[in-house]
């Protein structure tokens, strides 16, 4: 869906550039070549990469991951989160070490939790 939208956006941008030639603006290909790139205000150009199958996988960015608040990954709750609601259950994130017991996966003896020591 994103790709389709991106293609539509690009073709629209190119199309509008051609239409604008009538007024002497935009792309003008012959005989004296003049190329003008017009950026549609508010448009977000998306780089379409075709090498998804390469070893190592896909590149990731905030926009691809639908991070609507466009903030930095500070491992904190969002600014508009109430302090009391800023817990794993409220955000869908995992409980941080020290705030909940470790998973009972049989790896940790006696239920002891791992500790980050630096």
């Amino acid at each position: 869906m994103k790709r389709t939208f991106a293609l539509l956006l690009i073709t629209s941008a190119l199309g509008s550039g051609s239409v604008a030639n009538a007024g002497g603006h935009g792309l003008f290909l012959a005989p004296e070549v003049s190329t003008t790139l017009r950026i549609v205000p508010g448009a977000n150009l998306t780089l379409i990469d075709g090498d998804e199958e390469e070893d190592g996988g896909w590149l990731w960015s905030w926009s691809e991951d639908e991070d609507e608040d466009n903030d930095e990954d500070d491992d904190e709750c969002e600014d508009d989160d109430d302090e009391n609601d800023c817990a794993a259950g409220a955000t869908g994130n995992a409980a941080k070490a020290g705030t909940a017991p470790p998973p009972n996966n049989g790896l940790f003896t006696d239920g002891t939790a791992p500790v980050q020591s630096n």
Binding site: D75, G92, N93, A94, K96, A97, A100, P102
Partner: peptide, 12 residues
């Protein structure tokens, strides 16, 4: 499954 790392999660 987030529950797999409940209580054993830290900063990047």
């Amino acid at each position: 499954d987030v529950a797999q790392v409940d209580g054993i999660t830290g900063a990047s």
